[in-house]
Design a protein around this nucleic acid. Structure first.
Lengths: 136, 136
DNA sequence: GAAAATTACATGCCCGTGCATTCAATGTCA
DNA sequence: TGACATTGAATGCACGGGCATGTAATTTTC
């Protein structure tokens, strides 16, 4: 296969942005309308809920941050919002009292279970995987 | 090829988000540091500069909007910023006096020519096309 | 041709984000 | 142990974005 030209590289990138932006917008609206959740907020639930195994349960903020695409400050505020909504619990860490453990509350677990199908449904409707392939 | 499971669909999406966020951040920093341009601002230059043929030159705001992934209000402000920076010119349309024509100024053209290699370089460095394939 | 609906763009408002900073806790080195 | 560096998290601040609205111009409807 021949190497891509500069123009092709840029077109690929723009096409990707288009799919991501449209899909993100639809996702955000669906999650907000049906479950009162923002995209970043749901993403936190997704990690804490353990969608990808080896995660989930009680997690340090730092470990959560590594799993997200958010800055430390944005994550801090997102977690605060989820805490205020009663969707997760915070707990100090005995080993390192700077660290903060975060875990889904019962309400958070239910909200997560409710919202997950919406999330998956939208991704399938938008045919994201049919239009984009990422090497994981 | 077997159909993707729900988990696989979600993992693909998350992997895509990761690539897009990281690449966007690097792009934004490079364009800002080397050319004083934001990502959306450069995207406007890219369209007006005619990177994808059939565009470029004098364009209506509405046509520009259709080429971008921005809301109408955000585009309006982005264009205002570029105008204030002297990178583009605004001109009323005689046929429809609601419409607004927008075109690169000489300075804008130069800035665009300067910034384009940075843009392409980062996309290649991040190996975006090697990691993601989009059907256009 | 006047009233109503629609369109193009700008603006007020609020919200989420990143950067820089702060504060407290921990680690390091002498 | 005491001084200094580093780390984890929260917060002040400014900025860009979307939604709703405003304003002017155009089209539609009767």
């Amino acid at each position: 296969m021949a190497a891509l030209t500069d123009v092709e590289v840029r077109e690929q990138w723009c096409a990707t942005l288009r799919v991501v932006h449209v899909t993100s917008a639809v996702l955000e609206h669906a999650l907000q309308a049906e479950h009162g959740l923002g995209l970043s907020e749901f993403q936190v639930l997704l990690v804490l809920g353990g969608d990808c195994p080896a995660d989930g349960g009680k997690m340090r903020m730092k470990d959560l941050e590594a799993k997200m695409y958010l800055s430390q400050s944005a994550l801090s505020r997102t977690v605060t919002r989820l805490h205020d909504a009663g969707l997760l619990t915070r707990a100090a860490c005995d080993m390192d009292r700077r660290a903060l453990f975060v875990e889904l509350s019962d309400l958070g677990r239910r909200r997560y279970d409710d919202a997950l199908p919406t999330y998956t449904r939208v991704l399938r409707e938008q045919a994201v995987c049919e239009r984009m392939a990422v090497s994981v």
